[in-house]
Nucleic acid binder design. Sequence first.
DNA 1: TGACTATGACTGACCGGTCAGTCATGAATT
DNA 2: AATTCATGACTGACCGGTCAGTCATAGTCA
Lengths: 225, 225
Amino acid sequence: MTLKPTKTVVAPANGTSGTRAEPPSSNRAARAAERRQAIIEAALEEFIARGFAATRLDDIAKRAGVAKGTIYLHFKDKESMFEELVRLVIVPVVERLTKLPPPAGSVRDLVEVFASTFLREVASTRRGDLVRLIVAEGPRFPAVADFYYREVVQRGIAGMRALIELGIARGEIREKGLAKFPQILVAPVLISVIWQSLFERHAPLDAQAMLRVHLDLIFGERRTT
Amino acid sequence: MTLKPTKTVVAPANGTSGTRAEPPSSNRAARAAERRQAIIEAALEEFIARGFAATRLDDIAKRAGVAKGTIYLHFKDKESMFEELVRLVIVPVVERLTKLPPPAGSVRDLVEVFASTFLREVASTRRGDLVRLIVAEGPRFPAVADFYYREVVQRGIAGMRALIELGIARGEIREKGLAKFPQILVAPVLISVIWQSLFERHAPLDAQAMLRVHLDLIFGERRTT
DNA sequence: TGACTATGACTGACCGGTCAGTCATGAATT
DNA sequence: AATTCATGACTGACCGGTCAGTCATAGTCA
C-alpha cells in the first residue's frame, strides 16, 4: 500500500447539487449505479472492438475506472456479462422503435420514417457495431441469438409484414410476394450497417439515399402528386 | 501412417524402382501438400465454429491429424494463418464466379443465374459461414477486410453496376437510381447467408424464392410473354 | 452534534489453468 | 550418412476469477 490512488476525483459531477462541487455522487447506491453504468459502457466498447474472446476484463475495468473485482460485484462472469449487456442495450432501442409509428399517412411514408429512424438510431451509432457483434458471436451464444431473434427479428418481421400487407391492400405495393419476405424490406438497411463497420474507410455509403432508391423500387417511383 | 518402405518414385530414369505406390501418397512433396490441405480445411472449420481468438491450434492439429509443430512448417503463426486461409478459400470462388457469365439472354436471366450460382456455391456451404466470419473478424484484421473489399466487394459491385446499366439501357430496369447502389441488388443474398447461419433453426429461409421476389421488384413482375 | 461502530463496496495481488509458439528428438528420405 | 520432415513435450506469458483486507459511509448513541 504505497500510494493512494486519486479515486474520488474521477467522476464527472452529476451537476445536481449546485452548492457543493462533489465529484463523486454522495449517495452510495447512486455511486454503485454509476459504476455499473460505466462498466456496461466500457464493456460494450471493448467487446465491439475486440470480440468476446479477445476482450480482457482488465481492460474493461481500466476503461471503466474500476478495479477488476468490482465487475464481479455486478456480473456473475464474463459470459453472462456479455449476454446481459446485449439485453441492456437492445431493450431500450426496441421500446423506442415499438412505440414509434403514428398510424397516419401513406405506407411508404410510414416505412420511410421507420427505417430512417432506425438508420439514425442504430446504423450510425455504436449500436450498429452491436449488430455486427451479434452476427459475429451469435453462433457461439445461442442465448444471445435466441434473444435477438425473439425481441428484434421476429417482432421486426411481423411489423414489416403488417405494413406490407397494408400497402398491398391499399394498392401502394404491387409485388404481392413481398409479404412472404419482409426481409427484403430491411435488407438494405442491414447491409448499410455492416458496410459501414467494414468498408466505411474504403467507400462510405449514403445509407439514406440507398434506402430511398430501395423504397422507390418497392413503391414505384416517388409519386408525390 | 503405415508407410511401406518404398522408394521415391521421383526417379528420373525409367522405372527402375517399382511403379507402385499411390494409395498413401508416396512422394514427399505430395504428402506435404496433402497435410497442408488438411490443415487448411481443419482450420477453416475451427475458425468458423469458434472465431479467431477462441480457436486453439491444438484443436486444428488434432482435426487435421497432424502434430501442432507441423502447422508451423506451413504457416508463420496463427494470425497469418488466418489471413492466408481467407485468401485461399476466396480466390477460387471469385475465379469461378468471374468467368461465369455467358453474355446472352436478358439481363434478368443473367442476374438470376449469377445470384443462383452464388447462393448454391456460397450461401449453402461452409463458404457462407466464411462470409459471416469475415464480417465478424474484419474489423480486427484490416488485412482481411482490405483483401475482401478489393477482391470480392469492389469487383462484385462493379460487375453488378455494369449489369444494372445494361438493364437500364435495354429498358429492363426502370429504376435509374439503382446504378448508384448495386448493393441493393445483392442485399437479399447477403441477408440470406447471415440469416441461415444465425436463425436457420428458428425459421429457415427459402433464399431462392426470396431472390426471385426481389428480382421481380427490380425487373417488374415476370414478363414471360 | 460529535464520537464511535458496523457495513459492505471496492480494491488489486494472487492463483491456477490455458494456449501460442519452440525445439530436442527421432523417423523417413535421399 | 546426411538431410529433411514431423512430432509432441515443454515453456512462459497471459488472463479469468478469487478473496483477504481497506476505508468511506450509514447508523447508533450520548
